[in-house]
Design a protein around this nucleic acid. Structure first.
Lengths: 186, 186, 186, 186
DNA sequence: GATGAATGAGAATTCATTCAT
DNA sequence: AATGAATGAATTCTCATTCAT
């Protein structure tokens, strides 16, 4: 059954986003998932594999959300606004998933295999950016620098929102997306 | 002696930046610091305290570096450029310290106590930003949003440089600082 | 079906002779036997029972081989030579079975129940020995001491051969059987 | 302190000779040794290392006992009798140690590293045997075959004695040592 | 102050066995 | 009869922390 696998992944997400890798034992995952401890190992090779599989699933989901309402009839600016807002809304609406992905990225589990996966699932976004560069709508700078001014800022904002440090209401989102666009546009 | 305390902090920095919280035991710290395992507990209450104290020291050092060449006769833009470049250069030159701070920030150890400390040591920078807002040189937006477009971008860039994903040469730094400024300026 | 039972016993023999009791899980046995894990428990009560049943079957086979070419027209010496060589050849030709039996004998599984079985299946050999004692061809000593100078030496030789420590060619076998006989003969 | 190390080794010997490798957990060893579970790992790398170190210590002790009363003024036959009786008496007097060594030898832990150790500590015995061969007192056969007719028989006898299958009184020992000698002598 | 041997709770993982299908 | 997913007790081993020296 897919049920148990899903329950395990959900328990892992919940626990790790709240307590960190450190503070989450396989037993805890099993308990929250209402599953025997050994059952986890029927679906995942070991703890590292569990964390990695969860990360990949979340990244895929995230990448799909970004382009949910992609509309090629819009201006680049309009498309960028949509993309960026999707990112922020997802991050706000899914604080656990966001926290998990951030934590995973900054952990020794996240090796170079993961970068491949990252690139694979974000290729559509990369295409959009490259097109905008070619059309001279945004600055002609390395795409990784562009990424920082889009992804990292969006995620960081959502994180501060979840922390309660910022109130990301519509007004503030509008401010932020415009700051992003100012940074990128030619 | 201050010596042992310093040796412990340095060993902690080295080990954790290379192996993560997970992979660093108190025994390892003691060995690298050439100190008995029990000695750590004369200077720090426990592991969490050690990690936290190290974080605070690094944050203070970092905050002091930022304003190293602060020159009130320069334009806001010029002062911002200096500030931002200090940040990037420090991050590039001190990859272990940067890695440590990032890791700590994304860990469950980093609770709200830390935010206070953060604010305390960055008050001078905050003053500079607020003055620029008042003088209508940069956008009038919450300071935490400003922070994201300055700190987070700078650190993220340095991290990608350390990873080898970007080559942060002078040209790229100039590009990035201008993107930052475009995001902020009115 | 007898098929599955046989497949399970063969898989057990193969695995345990190669990997030991320790290194052989019921799942491995099931996999090699191409049988569901639960199926083993239709034929054997539990792991211990499986190991014990296999041991008994091997001991029976072994005891039958010993007297394969028993020829009552031969001298005692001739009959002993045949018997002993059968033993050595069987041990050399069936290293897995020999390894299994040795391992089982030296394990806590092998309790006193097994000694009964041992005696039962080797009664014919015991009769032959006792007859030789009565006829004053071999020394009049307890049969268990005789057994050591026949069985144990044969098996130990075969084991050293399998290890590669001795090359049990025909010459060496002849040497050894004569040493045995010298030990026994009056 | 050597105390704890010794206590751990003694507990291991006792438990494993009674319950086997399988049936002996590190926790049991710790409990019997009256030591914390972690303490074992201060003295031994892991379970395998513990078992191996114990084996080596026992083999050394055993090899020393064999030649305890070696007297070069005696005939070869006399020296062999002493040697062999030492072996039997040690095996009878130390059933746990004997059981342990037997068990270890027949386990997957016992790899080829051990053979080196075996040869090292029994070199004096080997020298004695080789001398007897040179002097044409015993048969000129491979030393490993000689070894089987001395060591294996002695240990096997002692084991049967411990099992209660044989009563190894002085008479029976005399019988057995003579059988051995008959097997070896020219 | 400094040490490091000792501790034992807790971690990840395995595996014999069961039982619903 | 046969299966194999599920289980959870048991295992090995780690490591933060203590405390006698």
């Amino acid at each position: 059954m897919k049920d148990k696998r899903t329950a395990i992944l959900e328990a892992t997400l919940k626990l790790i986003s709240e307590r960190g890798f450190h503070g989450t034992s396989m037993q805890m995952v099993a308990d929250i998932a209402k599953v025997g401890a050994g059952t986890i190992y029927r679906y995942f090779e070991n703890k590292e594999d569990l964390l990695s599989k969860l990360y990949v699933e979340l990244k895929i989901e995230f990448s799909e959300v970004l382009l949910a309402n992609y509309d090629s009839t819009l201006s680049f600016r309009g498309r960028f606004h949509n993309l960026w807002k999707n990112m922020v809304h997802y991050s706000i609406d899914n604080p656990q998933k966001t926290a998990y992905m951030e934590q995973y990225t900054n952990s020794p589990f996240c090796d170079h295999t993961m970068e491949e996966i990252h690139k694979k699932y974000f290729s559509k976004v990369a295409n959009f950016i490259n097109e905008a560069i070619t059309q001279e709508v945004i600055k002609d700078v390395p795409i990784d620098i562009i990424a920082i001014f889009t992804f990292e800022t969006a995620v960081a904002l959502a994180k501060k929102h979840s922390n309660g440090m910022i109130n990301l209401n519509d007004e503030n989102i509008e401010i932020a997306v415009n700051m992003c666009w100012d940074a990128l546009k030619k």
